[in-house]
Design a protein around this nucleic acid. Sequence first.
DNA 1: TCCAAGAATGTAGTAATACTACATAATATT
DNA 2: AATATTATGTAGTATTACTACATTCTTGGA
Lengths: 286, 286
Amino acid sequence: MSVETSHQNILEVVRVTRGALRKSDRKVADAILADPRRYLTATVAETAILADVSQPTVIRFCAAIGCGGFQDFKLRLAQALALGTPATHSALEDGDAAEIVFDKIFDYTITSLDWARNRIDKGLLARAVDILAAARRIEFFGFGASGIVAQDAAQKFPLFGVPCGAQMDAHQQIMTASLLGREDVAVIISNTGSTKSLFEIADIARGNGAKVIGLIGNTAPLMAHCDVSILIETLDNTDVYTPTISRIAALTVMDVLSTAVAMRRDPDHRGRIAAMKELLRELRST
Amino acid sequence: MSVETSHQNILEVVRVTRGALRKSDRKVADAILADPRRYLTATVAETAILADVSQPTVIRFCAAIGCGGFQDFKLRLAQALALGTPATHSALEDGDAAEIVFDKIFDYTITSLDWARNRIDKGLLARAVDILAAARRIEFFGFGASGIVAQDAAQKFPLFGVPCGAQMDAHQQIMTASLLGREDVAVIISNTGSTKSLFEIADIARGNGAKVIGLIGNTAPLMAHCDVSILIETLDNTDVYTPTISRIAALTVMDVLSTAVAMRRDPDHRGRIAAMKELLRELRST
DNA sequence: TCCAAGAATGTAGTAATACTACATAATATT
DNA sequence: AATATTATGTAGTATTACTACATTCTTGGA
């Protein structure tokens, strides 16, 4: 296994490689997946007893899943559990009390953000920052939850340092895209990457010479319609009730973009933002 | 130290207790804070050499910060680092490249969500779910970033299963609050808890017999104006550029509330949501 | 079907590491 | 200044991760 796997959630690695493991290794895998927290403080000897295998088999299991030894395995298990209980245990069930729903959704959200953190192409992100820093004007486009992200992004116009907008009406969006020009940037946010009118918006804006940046939740045809497409992958979950975490990841990416652009502005910009925040503080109390 | 500290980020514990440690223990603390990742795989012997103390002093340091031993310390260090690099290293600096900004903001976001996860009063949350599940109508109120949270929440009306709204105009907010009645619920979102008009909205709604739930970012007077106040604490950071993470935490809490309420609805509700999602999928492509 | 080779697994033992006991040094108190 | 207490380190022990080798199981070829 390559260096890349050192960033992978070890419980995901165990779950995914389980089928390809030797028989006794699979007994260890199943024991750990059944109660991962139990093994955080277990010795090799305890683990072997609980999984009904020998001690060297436990060590071999660790090597088989790409760990440098039992200690390495436990550190990585601690890291996975710090993020949250694995997806197999996070599935919402009908009798779940509010407290359980809370745990599951927070675990799922944090684990998904970690997933996204390790997969986003930072080179593309840096290119997006370059484009945004050079923009005369920025317009954000999205529908539904992505529309919320668009509005949140537009609200950061003080950080971007240029006029920003986020129309929610589909017709206004077409009108806005039609008026963008060479020095402008359109940012398209879409979880599914399949909302048809966003293709049109991207093509209109690009046809006018504007740059188009996409924040997209999967490898969709929409990516080809953007100058820079940032893929925001989160954990896959199609359960009816499970919230759309990619919007949380997209909001965080927007935080990154707006902050990085703000840091590109001239030094006076910082003072103006600080003063604005102070004004807002006072305004809230009047 | 109490059981409570077992949930605390060990790097935060080290940072906060550093001043009260014995002199040699403080040398260990400083060494670890300077390069925490280095110590993840270090033995007691290596740690002692790097910190210029004896081996038993390393063990004593672990006990002094509330760990059960060196192994326990390392597991907790792994957990803290899984969330992100500590705040002292996450501070944005002027020369930071976009990639560094990305790392710092994601680390800060995930660490803050973990912070919030461990501090939110789940009992209050369960009470809020009860109130929302019984509501005939729900209105969300917030300004700025909290306004975005309010709109996102209102957009979850299919999950809540009752009519939801989120006015952005301050006058419309007063009008809306004035029309709420006994069977209605107002949800007030505020990071600072000091936006004056929100006090008024809470009082008007309660005066009419509506229940008021607050999602508030600090212990502010606004809490006393709500029937249930959920305190959403995130890491404190007043740097000009650092994004407001409490809105991310508030969005996640809204995910919890809407999902928990949806799971309270009758079984047909689930089918209707699934059908709605399918309709949306088709709509996106037309 | 049988046999040999290779892979899987476990027993027994060793090496590495966390931890403890006791001695010494430093600091605080009387 | 003398004594008591606390802090720290040296040396050694106990625990645990890991390795070497033996045994068992499985697979492939004749």
